[in-house]
Design a protein around this nucleic acid. Structure first.
Length: 437
RNA sequence: GGCCCCAUCGUCUAGCCUGGCCUAGGACACCGGGUUUUCAUCCCGGCAACAGGGGUUCAAAUCCCCUUGGGGUCACCA
């Protein structure tokens, strides 16, 4: 049997897209692409109280941002009520389901379990057996006429011809119920693949206290979609070799369910930061700058007194020094604003204890440099001072750095001077001489 | 609690299916060293794991059982 692979991602629109859900979507997408199959999006909005239109939009946006495109859908279960009702009727007629009345909730339909042993094959766990006589007859149609999850999900997967159900292993214990419905309805069983869950850093279920849990937050916090995708792909799957930085193309080529783990993974924020930094380094400056702009705007660093060329240079210089987009803003703000924060430790170490005449010399000589865009001219200027005073270059570079940036770390000192420009440099040196020396 | 799933460095993992090539490999983090005007990058090196106990076998991280630990699930939520 070589029917075309067909998978689906079925979020319920009751909130944002959780990072775990994102990975489930990613694995489905990867599996579909690897097999030249189809990836279907289905909104499971059968909970009339909790489902919202906004949540649906947020989830769609998140998937799009991650670059996970779907081939069909999004279908909405709330628009497919007739289909479920037909199947409920069928079961009712065949005596496989029955009505139950609740004085408060109204009239619902329960599925009648026959109490047999079911087993199903799981592509990541192997064969799983269970005894449905241990399970209660469960509701498949609520009093409001909407189907319940376990029922709608099976009907849709059956009707849509889903070949592989790839989902979190929190659904493992639901599967026997669903298998029973597949059988009662006469649907062919799909292949199941229950992937391990993503836990918080301490091994417990991932929640807000662990840090960001939604794709939206990662986006806002300055992570790149490619980095996030690469990172979560590796949480439970490995390509089988030592390479960790993988393009979508490479992931698609390598992805198989066979290489998916059984063990739940903890979310390591530190490693994600490292990976994001890698992706930032590899991004062409133009792309990086356009991603940076919203953050600059948010911090009021977009006052427009600089040219694109200047900004490109600055970003290029700092590219290897930040791991998330907003970090750039923190590092580079002294270039945009005159309200510099002088770090206490840096001032103490490099200004208070330095030789005042060194900085005064620098001020006077830098004043004579006409062309701040000439690195060689700047270098000649500063080198001549350290030569005169017979000190190592660091003795001069560090105080200047702190004087003009406020921190003991920045890009190269000449490039920093160049990008800051003569006027600001002299102003800040003057301020330093008057204030700290 | 019943049922189900899982168990390799602190973390993500390779190896397990098809025992021997494993004195267990890689990455992040951490600690040293090198390069550099600082930081970062980059390069080199180091630390660090088969949960415990029984089997099976000439041989077990790999197969079996038990214990322990972790997770999931038991809704007219999905």
């Amino acid at each position: 049997m070589t029917s075309k692979v067909k998978v689906r991602f079925p979020p319920s629109p009751t909130g944002f897209l959780h990072i775990g859900g994102a990975r489930t979507a990613l694995y489905n997408w990867l599996f579909a692409r690897h097999n030249n199959g189809e990836f279907i999006l289905r909104i499971e909005d059968t909970d009339q109280q909790r489902s919202t239109e906004e949540a649906t939009q947020v989830i769609l946006d998140s998937l799009t941002w991650l670059g996970l495109d779907w081939d069909e859908g999004p279908y909405h279960q709330s628009e497919r009520l007739e289909i479920y009702s037909e199947h409920v009727e069928k079961l009712l007629k065949e005596g496989k389901a029955f009505h139950v009345d609740d004085p408060e909730k109204g009239r619902a339909v329960r599925f009648k379990l026959t109490g047999e042993l079911t087993n199903f094959d799981d592509l990541v766990h192997g064969n799983i057996n269970s005894d449905t006589s241990l399970i209660e007859d469960f509701v498949i149609q609520k009093a409001d006429g909407f189907p319940t999850y376990n029922f709608a999900c099976v009907v849709d997967d059956g009707v849509m011809g889903i070949t592989h159900v790839i989902r979190g292993d929190d659904h493992l214990s639901n599967t026997p119920r669903q298998v029973a419905i597949y059988k009662a309805l006469g649907f062919e069983l799909p292949k199941f693949a229950h992937i391990p869950m993503i836990l918080g850093e301490d091994g417990s279920r991932m929640s807000k206290r662990h840090g960001a849990t939604s794709v939206t937050e990662y986006r806002e916090n300055g992570y790149l979609p490619d980095a996030l995708v690469n990172f979560i792909a590796l949480l439970g799957w490995s390509p089988g070799h030592d390479q960790e930085l993988l393009t979508r193309q490479e992931m698609t080529e390598k992805f198989t369910l066979k290489r998916v783990n059984k063990t739940s993974a903890r979310f390591d924020y530190t490693k994600l930061d490292w990976m994001n930094g890698k992706y930032i380094q590899d991004l062409p400056v133009e792309d990086l700058v356009s991603k940076l702009r919203p953050y600059m705007k948010g911090a009021n660093l977009d006052n427009g007194v600089f040219t694109d060329e200047w900004l490109y240079k600055l970003v290029e210089l700092y590219k290897e020094r930040f791991r998330t987009l907003p970090e750039f803003v923190t590092l580079a703000s002294p270039f945009f604003t005159d309200e510099i924060e002088y770090e206490d430790a840096a001032v103490q170490k490099h200004l208070k204890k330095s030789n005042p005449s060194l900085i005064k010399d620098a001020y006077n000589k830098l004043k004579e440099v006409n062309d701040f865009s000439s690195i060689t001219e700047l270098e000649d200027c500063l080198r001549s001072i350290t030569t005169e005073h017979s000190v190592g270059f660091g003795k001069l570079a560090q105080p200047i750095r702190v004087a003009i940036i406020g921190k003991s770390a920045s890009a190269g000192i000449f490039e920093t001077l160049e990008l800051l420009g003569k006027e600001k440099t002299l102003k800040r040196l003057e301020y330093t001489i008057n204030t700290f020396l």
